[in-house]
């Protein structure tokens, strides 16, 4: 019927809009992570834990941040993984 084909057309349009939004958002985010590479990053974590490290990279599912020279309260850990679930936010300068 006409109405159902019109509906499926607008569905397709809606899907394209969503795909476009998703890819713009994702590309901007991936570029942001790439820009953070080798930068000093400050992690603000749960339980009021704040640490600094040199950002290296993240897995694409954003579950883990891989960092170097992590300044923990009890010393420097040369290489570390920080769980995303432990983090509230992180900052760096550009």
């Amino acid at each position: 019927s006409i109405s159902s084909s019109a509906a499926s057309e607008s569905d397709a349009e809606e899907l394209q809009k969503e795909q476009h939004a998703r890819s713009v958002l994702r590309e901007r985010f991936l570029r942001c992570l790439l820009a953070a590479t080798n930068k000093k990053v400050r992690f603000h974590m749960h339980e009021n834990v704040n640490v600094e490290a040199t950002f290296r990279t993240s897995d694409i599912d954003v579950l883990n941040f891989q960092v170097s020279d992590l300044h923990t309260p009890i010393g420097v850990q040369k290489e570390a993984l920080i769980r995303c679930q432990d983090v509230i936010s992180f900052t760096f300068d550009m």
Partner: peptide, 29 residues
Amino acid sequence: LTVDPVSASVVLLNFREDAALVHVVVGHS
């Protein structure tokens, strides 16, 4: 700047004179 569609993390920018502070708030927070 963006919201990561995978983790829902938000990227905020604050501009200073000649630099910018980037703030990533992870999605679950």
